[in-house]
Nucleic acid binder design. Structure first.
Lengths: 347, 347
DNA sequence: CTGAAAGCGCTTACAG
DNA sequence: CTGAAAGCGCTTACAG
């Protein structure tokens, strides 16, 4: 039975083999396993025998076959704009864990924040017969009603008025950043925003602007750099704002990675974050606190957000309903905006 | 047909519907589509008609059904220790792209660097009938021959003597770091290593030690901190090494994230990376160059590594053979080890 | 080139 | 409780 050409010979055990080993009909095996999965005790001598054989032969049912016949896949799909973004990776990770705890499998797909790709990946997930989808890359202007009619759909991170979502209160997050910087006495600002279709970016900017307004300050359109969420975006925006006649003294970036990009731009110009230009990021990823100049950041509860989204989807899939939740962000002030905190020691 | 209970009514178009619409037998549809996928032109009037209908109805074949019958899934599985690590996320991302270009689907699973979980996730991927697997979390002591007998298997990032792998020349990477630090005149070192089962960590440490030896220097066992690859690991190791009677003046961390953790530990003690203690990281992720004190890092060609792994697997799956490749790392010297480079400006 | 049949591995009514 | 049958959506020899 060993292949000659070096090709591996996969011999997955099938239900039929279990059945013949136990001297029963395959359907009896199917029933025994179903009972066992539900946590019920074996209904007969035979059943416990079947379970033993299953164990011994290391049998696991073919999920594609069961979903083809049974209609349910016990799998959910997750669509993210970018898996290389720590934030999204963290969210997916937590969703995956929550799904596993509930006995579901999870699949991720990457949309690269591109509507065409998004549609295709969505199609892919649906063709894999997932029982529901968590969308992490919804677009503000997008009509998702068709998708929502096809499968159970929950949004995470980026909300949408028509659909249930688990998000951070991004307006509040932006407000916290704006209020903080205004209180420090800054009067000229820049915002390193994500793409215009991201609800997160929109709300954070709006909240930031609102906070400034409360202090009688204004954020001009040209002070908002719609670039993206990664390090390079931050660097680009930073270079551009510093090339201006009156550069800002305070910068709010919507992602810690882009905030670090801004720090890089400052350093290149001989400026120091915190003392020369205040920098505030968003999400408070683990490295933020450990940077040579620790980064002030709005912390969003990513794991809870992910768990809420997973819970909502599980509820929908079992016939229940789900209402959107908005989680409270908190501001962690560090030396990048306030040098009196975590002071940097000069050697 | 609209569901009453709010449950979505999914009505995926099936091949049968295409067939009846076109007035042909389902098998004819199957053949027409197969030809089209191979890039061949329609073999008849009928076939072009079938393709039109397929297009119009937005039909995509059910991959689970085709793999069940056809034996091939045109999908590959990728197992990573941790998706929240930028390095692995980047690798997966590139593998996914390469797979798509070749007409394959990709699935990731997370093993959390835990052997039990790894076995279960591997089982899951196999039960999904993937045509091959790329393993990113191989363990040094592990016997993977059973898996290799079951499916086509290629390793990425972490190599193994018995299996084809795409890796960075980690010994060389460690050597570059060691040589660099020794040339700068350092004599006391610390290594922030990953877990002992990671071949990457082992080789980098060995290479580092070899470079020191060439300079007549020694790395003691207690100078190697086997902690992990994340920020927190670096912070922990950093705190511990600084609590010693004679702290090191040069630190080599096997991951940029853990290097940043070390920087955090330095800052907490009032020490500055580069001037007080040299810090070198590994992988050279995008933020490394933008940090307030830019991080010296050994760059490993992650994307190429991923593409090589994907190519190797594709070759194996089409009956060919694959030899391991080791990619050359390069050292990017920055201010965290050499303050004369990228000097930090004090405001 | 096309149709009809068989079957991939499983599950679910239907009888007994 | 258990067996036998039908079928999920597809593909692949087999005839014609």
């Amino acid at each position: 039975m060993t292949g000659a050409g070096g090709a591996p010979d996969g011999f997955p055990v099938t239900m039929r083999e279990i059945a013949s080993e136990a001297g029963v009909h395959p359907s009896t095996v199917s029933r025994a396993l179903r009972r066992a999965r539900s946590g019920l005790p074996p209904a007969s001598q035979r059943e416990s025998n079947i379970l033993q054989i299953t164990e011994r032969l290391g049998y696991t049912p073919d999920p594609t076959a069961s979903s083809l016949r049974g209609g349910q896949s016990r799998a959910i799909g997750v669509l993210v704009p970018r898996l290389t973004d720590t934030v999204l990776a963290t969210i997916y990770d937590s969703i995956e864990s929550a799904a596993h705890r509930a006995g579901y499998e999870a699949f991720v797909a990457n949309s690269n924040d591109d509507p065409d790709l998004q549609a295709r990946r969505l199609q892919l997930l649906l063709s894999r017969r997932v029982d529901g989808i968590i969308l992490g890359d919804a677009r503000r202007d997008q009509d998702l009603s068709a998708v929502a009619r096809t499968t159970h759909l929950v949004l995470v991170s980026r909300g949408h008025p028509d659909l249930p979502s688990a998000t951070c209160d991004d307006f509040r997050g932006g407000w916290l950043a704006g209020d903080h910087l205004a209180r420090l006495g800054h009067t000229t600002f820049a915002v390193v925003a994500g793409p215009p279709w991201a609800q997160t970016s929109f709300d954070r900017t709006t909240g930031f602007r609102a906070a400034l307004a409360e202090h009688g300050l204004r954020l001009r359109t040209e002070d908002v750099y719609e670039v993206g969420f990664d390090t390079e975006s931050g660097r680009t925006a930073g270079d551009r704002m510093l090339a201006r006649r009156t550069p800002p003294t305070a910068v709010f970036a919507m992602n810690d990675h882009s905030a670090i990009g801004v720090m890089g731009a400052l350093r290149a110009k001989g400026l120091r974050p915190g003392t020369d230009v205040a920098v505030v990021g968003f999400n408070d990823i683990p490295i933020a606190a450990e940077l040579p100049i620790p980064l002030t950041s709005v912390r969003s509860p990513l794991q809870r957000m992910a768990e809420e989204a997973a819970d909502m989807l599980l509820r929908l899939m079992s016939g229940g309903s789900a209402a959107s939740v908005k989680l409270e962000p908190t501001l962690n002030v560090r030396a990048s905006s306030d040098p009196t905190v975590d002071p940097v020691v000069d050697g």
